[in-house]
Design a protein around this nucleic acid. Structure first.
Lengths: 235, 235
DNA sequence: TCAAAAGTGTTGGGGGTACACCCATGC
DNA sequence: GCATGGGTGTACCCCCAACACTTTTGA
């Protein structure tokens, strides 16, 4: 009974993928949502989602959506969250949703697609009731981010290539839901030696960038090397 | 195109569940495996697995298997890992495996079921090539455990109700792959105030228990309360 | 009697936290 | 000029890591 071949598979399930795209505008963490134009959730917001064909690789739909919404393709950005089963029951049968998420810099978002799909970045605190079980998925993604950001410098993905320490601190405070002392925060980050001082100052045009602040970028190569030696970014 | 209702679901996928049960014998971390009696993996070991019926709740199969193998039922023990897609391709179509895992005390394992299914506890270091993509699933479970054990006192689930500090230290050393100074380890654990001193000594019968060592149990209630107040067990 | 594990304190250093003021910019 | 954020140094405390010897038990 415990062995695979002694039961018969029930080939009547369909798979879908939802993609939780998390961005940051300098103040709030945000999720990309689309508006449904069909019953039974007409008018409701929901996560960008697609069905999978039976032979698709599990991440395929998520990658396709990502490609359509961003100006580049980097599979390492996308991570599977979980399978969610309490899904909308399609008249045709059971649908199971395999949710993925990615942390993105809003600078890379292609606005042309926005109009086409009536998509919008919605701040964490203003996410309404969503279609299907998408509130549950968003909640799960938030928790995943909170765990990840403590152990890995994933936060940098949410910022533009060049950022200020103020932006970085706001991001960490927002993500972890607490505040840090400015001086201690800076000391801690400098100690990692993962920040590259770009030796120039912000012009104040970037959102959340104060004019005159020093600009930094994240030393990804160095981090990759340190990771191999067992380094654990810790917050 | 990004919206659910505008594509048609492909209701021809089947779901299966594999359950990674991790135990500890005082020396090694171990995984419970069964032996396949059918082609194409006849003779190979694999994870306890079952198909899901189309309307089953996603964790149902995992729970059923758990109930059959252990003397109690506690759904909070089981956690979903991920959906795995590179699965054995059944002649009938695509099968996607939603893997779960649970940390268990081998004391609670029902040996009667063992014989019936030719199941065996296999140490981490001796896991052979498994059927399907089960090596990948086991690997994922190992990493999940390693992450969890740093943040939450899940390790206690792997020990019997009453354990010695020696057992606990060996467990942490095995799980995290490093060694700790005995005195520092003890101080650290006492400081959590999560150990209950049972004020009696081991009789040396329990595996990994040295006769004469002090016995402790884990204060689960206290941990639950501390967790609510934001406490984070940290290793 | 020998090997293996239990049990026990102290010290030094590093990292975290708390804390205040001046400067530059934009409104 | 006023509000907002940028930028800077010090002191204390706690926690972690390093370190050795005696006792008990089983083989």
């Amino acid at each position: 009974m415990l062995q695979f071949p002694q039961e018969e598979p029930d080939f009547q399930v369909a798979l879908s993928t939802s993609l939780v795209l998390i961005g940051f505008d300098g103040v709030d963490l945000q999720v990309l949502l689309a508006r449904s134009t069909r019953a039974p959730f007409e008018g409701a917001l929901f996560l960008p989602s697609r069905y999978l064909n039976r032979d698709d690789e599990l991440m395929l739909s998520a990658r396709r959506m990502f490609e359509q919404l961003f100006s580049y393709d980097d599979p390492s950005m996308i991570e599977q969250l979980q399978a969610f089963g309490k899904v909308f029951r399609h008249p045709g049968g059971r649908v199971v949703n395999i949710a993925h998420y990615a942390l993105v810099s809003k600078d890379d978002f292609q606005a042309s697609q926005w109009d086409q799909h009536d998509m919008q970045w919605v701040p964490y605190s203003k996410i309404p009731d969503l279609a299907f079980d998408h509130n549950e998925i968003v909640q799960y993604a938030k928790e995943r981010l909170k765990r990840r950001v403590k152990r890995r410098p994933v936060g940098f993905r949410l910022l533009p290539e060049e950022f200020t320490l103020g932006q970085l601190q706001t991001l960490y405070e927002t993500t972890l839901g607490k505040t840090f002392d400015k001086r201690n925060f800076r000391k801690k980050l400098f100690k990692t030696t993962l920040l590259i001082d770009l030796e120039k100052n912000a012009d104040g045009k970037g959102s959340g960038q104060h004019k005159g602040s020093q600009l930094f970028s994240f030393n990804k190569d160095k981090y990759e090397k340190m990771k191999l030696e067992g380094y654990d970014f810790l917050f």
